[in-house]
Computed example of a mutant assay.
Amino acid sequence: MGDVLLKALSFVAIIAVGYVLKRIGFFKAEDAKLLSKIVIYLTLPAALIGGFETFSFSLSLLVSIVVGFVASVILLAVGFLLSRGREGTVRALYGLNLPGYNIGTFVMPFVQSFLEPAGIVVISMFDMGQALWSLGGSYAVVFGSIAGERRVRLRDIVSKLFHSAPFLTYFVMFVLSLCRVRLPAQVFSVAKIFGSGNAFLAMLMIGVMFDLRLERSEIRDVVRILGARYLLNAVFAAAVWALLPVPALVKQVLTVGLFASIPTVTTAYCEKCGCKSSVSGVLGSLSILISLALVLALLLSWS
C-alpha cells in the first residue's frame, strides 16, 4: 500500500512540477508539443514493445478490443443524443469529447508502473479498439453530420491510424506474436531502457499542457459532457466486472482504461469543426484532474 501511494504521489508531483515550470516561464505551452513527440514516437512505442516480451494470446485480448470499440460507439451516440437540436459546433463538442480515451500518454504510464507487465498488452488491445474513433472515426462522423457534403472516407481514417506510431507498434507486435515470431531478447532489453522514461515524460507533458479558462456561459455544456462521460464509463466498468469471464488483471486494466482522460488530439478535431478551442481545452484539463483522482483511487483500492 505504501509503495503504491508513493508512486501515485510521485505522478501527481511530476504533473505539478510541469505546471509550475510552465507558470514561471521555464516551459512554454508549445514545449508540450516537443514532449508529446518524444513520448509518442520514442518512449511509448518502446514501452509497448517491452510489454510484449511475455505476451501470450488469449480470448481476453479480443474482449479488450471489443470493449474499447463498443464503449466509444455508445458514447458517440449519446453525444449526438444530448446535443440534438443544437447548432453544429455544439453537436461537434459533444460528439468529439464524449467518446475517446487518452491511453498512450495518460493510462499507459499507470499500467506500466502499477500493474503487472501483461497489463500493457491488455490496454494496448483496448486502445486498438477505441483508436478507430479517437484518432479519426468520431471526427469523420461528426464532421459529416454538421457539414453534409464533405465526408471523411474510411480509408482516410485507416491511413491516419497506421501513421500513428503507438498504434502501428502494437499492431505489428500483435501480428508478430500471432505468427509466433519472437524478437531477440536484446531488443526487449533495449526497449525497456527507452520505455522506462515514458511515465515521467508523459506526466510532465500533462503538467505543461494543463490549463483552465472558461466563461460562465460555457459551464453548462462542460458539466453535461463530463458528467455523461464519467457516469457512462462507470456503468461500462461495472459491466466489465459483472459480466466478462476474464482474469482480474484484465478487469483492472479495462477499468483504468475506461476512466482515461479525453485524448489530447480531440482539441485539434474540435477546432476543425469550429468549436471554441478554449472550451475543448478546459474539457481536456478537467478530465485530466477527474481521471487522475479516479485512477489513483482505483489503484490504491487494489493494492
Rank of each mutant, 00 (worst) to 15 (best):
A293Q: 04
F69S: 10
L81V: 14
L42C: 14
G284T: 09
P45D: 08
V223N: 00
F162A: 07
L204N: 08
V223G: 00
G207V: 07
M108C: 03
F236C: 07
S138G: 15
I193C: 00
G148D: 10
G104D: 08
F236A: 06
N102F: 02
F167Q: 00
E30W: 06
I65C: 00
L44A: 13
K22F: 12
D156H: 11
T89A: 13
A131V: 12
A248V: 15
G85M: 11
F210L: 14
G104L: 03
L6A: 14
F188M: 06
M203I: 08
V253F: 08
A238N: 00
L294C: 07
S64M: 01
A228F: 13
A268H: 09
A13H: 09
S83Q: 01
L59P: 00
F106Q: 05
K28N: 15
V12A: 14
F106A: 03
K251T: 05
F200A: 13
H163R: 15
K192D: 11
V66K: 01
L21H: 08
P263T: 01
R86T: 15
G129N: 05
R84F: 12
L135P: 01
N97W: 10
R180D: 14
G257Q: 05
F210E: 05
A238M: 01
L81R: 12
T264W: 00
I225G: 01
V12I: 15
L178D: 11
